[in-house]
Amino acid sequence: MEHPILFISIILEKLGLPVPHTVTGHNLLEQLCTPYMTYTWLVMAFLIIVPKLTMGKLEMVPGSGQNFWEVMVGGLMDFFTENLGEDGAKMLFPMMATFFLYIILANMIGLIPGFMSPTSNLNITLGMTLIVWVTHHVLGFKYHGLSYYKHFMGPSKALAPFMFLLEIISNFARLISLSMRLFGNIFAKEVLLAVLFMLAGAYFAPLPILCLGVLVSVIQAVVFVLLAVLYCAGAMEHAH
């Protein structure tokens, strides 16, 4: 597919850095200059700089900037407390909230012409999913010790080896489906927007898809974080 214009790639090319024309580059420098990496850094920079600017010093009577972040963080904290309990929410809040802010911003940034969603690349979503997947097993071992294996054995002793096989398969299916869903939704949005832009961009043809794109971006971010939280909650509770 012909790539749409990407501002950061153009700037990097002007600076003389190699921007690969395949999905991933061949050597390290090319891999660092692929669009999904550069736009990830843009999102990271945005998430570091903008809260710093809008919040300023924390005050007793919050201004509008501080108000927004308080509502955001407070809402997320309530949401996690409901599913994970007080202690679990406090422990997992930094990771899960980071995922939420990063994914929602990474999804949304693709709606602006000249930018792309880093989440429309499977490497990014699979990386995030691997973090979640490893974390929820580590949490399981942390909370239950070695008896965490009972989660995989099912209720009856006779069927335990068979159940173990089933649980292993469905665990790996979890890993793939969580990454593929986010990737598939956002990639579809990106491709559809690009195609409509090329075909009938002058007649505002992408406009309805842009509206739907906002919806998809928010829903996918919420669903990803919610499922991550549910998996962690499932690993932390007692085996049935």
């Binding site: 398969i169 793939i176 919610l226 499922l227 549910l230």
Partner: peptide, 21 residues
């Protein structure tokens, strides 16, 4: 929203279980 998350996941999990098997 919780149910939306679980239902939207179950179809893909079903398919990938078969593929992984």
């Amino acid at each position: 929203i919780r149910q939306l998350a679980e239902y939207s996941q179950i179809g893909m999990t079903f398919v990938f279980s078969i593929v992984i098997g």
